[in-house]
């Protein structure tokens, strides 16, 4: 089976992650319950004629994927695989609202066409004139990991030499309100739930490393429902499959978001407490279904640059060489995922 390398990556998030920097100017916002993505100047990348029907998610994904492809030197990938939890929810709301407002009449095509989840992958492919494998995964908080798993298999099984894979989600005021009503999102900073956000992360994976390679992806695994007691064996079992012990992990990237399910992350951190540095990142990015794409971007850059941004260090630690990195994410006690990266 072919190995899988991350040869390029780009992220759009609530931090200025699109400008080439590495969280040097990152800011922790402790006041707001929603952190909007810092969007690039779309006009510099997409013509107004082309972008007029595109929602925020589509535009973020097109630009993040364009940056990743540019970095990788790949003009047209063999496959495009997208993960999204809520899809193009801005246009979904627009379309549904038009149905209600107009008594199921006068339905226009644009917002319907743009409301489907696979619009993102379709628009990327149209822009690149890519007629290869194109798939979209909509699996809640493991949407991105599902896309990543497919991308890895495409390369390992030699169905593709390179794959553009990414995750994207956008937020609307109404969707946020619904999340707040059910207690998943914070209504104010003192309430339960998590701070919500949005963003996009896209990567070019390939079977051959290049000078720009960030890391190798060893594996990704998903598990829908786990008790806290079952978590250690889930993690150690995954590591053993790759002949690793917790003591051989140098860095854990954990998805703590401040809600009551952070106990899972505490349990995971406990497993590595004597060996690895654990960094958390959602204080910078907030929570959204495909935020683990940001975690992959972050972990990849840390491995490549052998540098942990100051704002993420739990304390003034001097770290050893970072060779093996484990990304752990879950959302509300469900949709657990592990991604294992290795330095090349």
């Amino acid at each position: 089976m072919s190995k899988v390398y991350i040869n390029a990556g780009a992220a759009i998030s609530a931090q200025a992650t699109f400008d080439g920097g590495f969280l040097e100017n990152a800011v922790i916002n402790r006041q707001d319950v929603f952190l909007p993505a810092i969007e690039p100047d779309y006009k510099a990348f997409i013509s107004p004629v082309a972008s007029r029907r595109m929602s925020k998610a589509v535009k973020m994904a097109i630009i993040a994927s364009a940056q990743a492809l540019n970095e990788s030197g790949v003009s047209v990938p063999d496959a495009i695989i997208t993960g999204t939890g809520a899809g193009c929810i801005i246009d979904s709301e627009k379309f549904l609202k038009a149905i209600i407002d107009n008594d199921e009449q006068f339905l226009t095509p644009t917002s319907f066409i743009q409301s489907t989840h696979n619009t993102v992958g379709a628009q990327i492919a149209l822009g690149l004139n890519c007629k290869g494998y194109n798939f979209t995964y909509v699996n809640g908080a493991v949407s991105f990991e599902s896309a990543l798993l497919d991308a890895i298999m495409q390369i390992e099984l030699q169905q593709a030499n390179n794959v553009l894979v990414g995750g994207v989600d956008e937020m609307t005021p109404y969707f946020l309100e619904l999340q707040q009503m059910i207690g998943h999102a914070k209504s104010d900073i003192a309430t339960v739930g998590s701070v919500q956000s949005e963003g996009a992360g896209f990567f070019v994976l390939a079977n051959t490393p290049t000078e720009s390679t960030y890391a190798a992806i060893e594996d990704v695994t998903l598990y829908n429902k786990l008790s806290i007691a079952e978590l250690p064996s889930f993690i150690t079992g995954f590591l053993r499959k790759h002949h690793l012990e917790p003591s051989q992990i140098d860095l854990v990237v954990a998805g703590n978001n401040g809600d009551v399910f952070d106990d899972y992350y505490d349990k995971a951190a406990h497993l590595f407490r004597n060996y690895a540095i654990t960094v958390q990142y959602k204080q910078l990015t907030g929570e959204y279904f495909t935020v683990s794409a940001f975690a992959l971007w972050l972990a990849s850059r840390i491995i490549k640059e052998q540098h942990i941004p100051e704002i993420l260090k739990p304390h003034a630690v001097k770290h050893k060489a970072i060779k093996n990195v484990l990304i752990y994410n879950q959302y509300r006690g469900l949709d657990h995922s592990l991604i294992l990266l290795k330095r090349v």
Binding site: R53, F106, L107, T108, P109, T110, I113
Partner: peptide
């Protein structure tokens, strides 16, 4: 053509 549909509506 999509614009044409929008204008018809």
């Amino acid at each position: 053509s999509i614009d044409a549909l929008e204008l018809i509506v």
